[in-house]
Design a protein around this nucleic acid. Structure first.
Length: 410
DNA sequence: AATTCGGGGGG
DNA sequence: CCCCCAGAATT
């Protein structure tokens, strides 16, 4: 048997130490081979599993992904099963994970793979980039992890590791810096041992997740396999890097939720295919436009997002202890009732206030005001919603605030 | 080049 | 309370 050729590290990066560290300390993840590395003989990475995990891991911590991944693989063991699935079922399994567009992109990607790639996850970055929901990072990750291609990756972890290792002081989200980081990532994966391209990329990310951690808190530089080769560490600048440009603050908005009961069932509607919580279901909900909050006009037009406005902000003022914090506004009974009649063809009793809670997203702080009423007469307009018993929502994908509202209604 | 897509982890 | 997370698509 011929002696295994030794890989020589380039002078400016200790590939060998990083790979050795990775093989000892990597987390056990359900899409990783059990004990060996992904390039050992007899150990095969499942490219479909890699696709699933990468789609779920976008902007999401790995620990959060794991249980979702397990349920997904159980429900859709192969890419064919996923391609043939109903989108509502895919969204239901994605419920709680956020960025629901990813689920629909993944579903469409599975169908593309079945129809155009004979059910096999593509090997090349170019083919991968043509899949919906697959961008530069995900294409590189799948190509390298599933197929051991020398394709570069750049995610939050790698950007942080490289910015520190190379002591890059410019903002890592600056386009020029991004270009530099991508070039560095490519150089590094191409100079990694040929049999370990996937492991090398995963090692960079694993280092960022376990050792070269983001603030708050300190990175564990004393345990870092890169040691003093890291320029930021050598110069005492690790805690100052990477530099990021400040982000915009979320805007405050208010959503009105109305639970309409009839014969023990509640009315649910589906959100539009674009925007927040696309294609998810909800109790009838409207966003209150900031400019219309204090006026007394009925909602303009009939689309989602149009707003029945509260008649007044001061309510329950005759009950002092009812509101130790904020006043509990009541919806404009007349305008709201007219709106429900126009939109769903339903006549409802005067809505009663149930509760209020806040929901935080990246770009909004949403105050949800929950009301309850019952439908008295009128037939539901076709295709405007569904009546569901609250204990039979197992197939309806619902976002977090809707689950919260349903809990408060019980 | 900027914004918009969720929800949770963790200091 | 804050920033961050195995980013992508849209404008």
């Amino acid at each position: 048997m011929p002696a295994k050729k030794e890989h020589l590290d380039p002078p400016d990066f200790p590939h060998s130490r990083l790979l050795r560290w990775y093989r000892q300390h990597r987390r056990k993840l359900p899409w990783r081979p059990r004990k060996k590395t992904n390039t050992d003989p007899g150990v095969v990475v499942n490219p479909y599993h890699v696709l699933l995990s990468e789609a779920m891991a976008q902007q999401t911590q790995i620990a959060t992904v794991v249980p979702y991944f397990e349920r997904f693989v159980a429900a859709f063991p192969t890419v064919h099963d996923l391609a043939a699935a109903d989108e509502q079922q895919v969204l239901k399994l994605w419920q709680g994970l956020g960025y629901y567009r990813r689920a629909r992109h993944l579903h469409a990607a599975a169908q593309t793979i079945v129809e155009q790639h004979d059910g096999k996850v593509p090997c090349t970055v170019d083919d991968l980039l043509n899949l919906p929901g697959v961008g530069r990072y995900t294409a590189g990750a799948i190509a390298s992890i599933a197929h051991n291609q020398p394709a570069p990756i750049l995610d939050g972890n790698v950007a942080r590791v490289l910015a520190r290792f190379d002591r890059i002081e410019t903002p890592v989200n600056d386009p020029l810096t991004l270009k530099q980081l991508w070039a560095r990532s490519e150089q590094l994966v191409q100079s990694a041992p040929k049999a370990s391209r996937g492991d090398f990329n995963q090692a960079l990310m694993e280092l960022g997740a376990l050792i070269c951690t983001p603030p708050p808190g300190s990175p564990k530089c004393l345990y870092c396999p890169l040691g003093n080769d890291c320029r930021a560490f050598a110069d005492g600048r690790v805690e100052q890097l990477p530099v990021k440009t400040p982000k915009k603050k979320p805007t405050a908005v208010t959503h009105l939720v109305v639970a309409i009961e009839k014969n023990g069932k509640l009315l649910f509607e589906q959100r539009p295919p674009k925007g927040l919580w696309s294609n998810m279901w909800q109790l009838p909900t409207w966003e209150l436009p900031p400019e219309a909050r204090d006026s007394d006009s009925p909602p303009a037009g009939r689309g989602r997002g149009r707003v029945p406005k509260p008649k007044t902000y001061r309510a329950h003022s005759d009950k002092p202890e009812a509101s130790s914090t904020l006043p509990q506004p009541l919806p404009a009974g007349g305008a709201l009732k007219a709106h429900l009649r126009e939109r769903f063809g339903l006549n409802v009793a005067a809505p009663g206030f149930v509760d209020v809670f806040k929901h935080q997203t990246t770009h909004r702080t949403i105050t949800f005001r929950v009301y309850r009423t019952s439908a008295k007469a009128g037939r539901l307009k076709p295709r405007t919603g569904q009546w569901r018993r609250p204990d039979e929502l197992h197939d309806l994908p619902l976002a977090k605030p809707q689950l919260t509202a349903l809990t408060l209604l019980k």
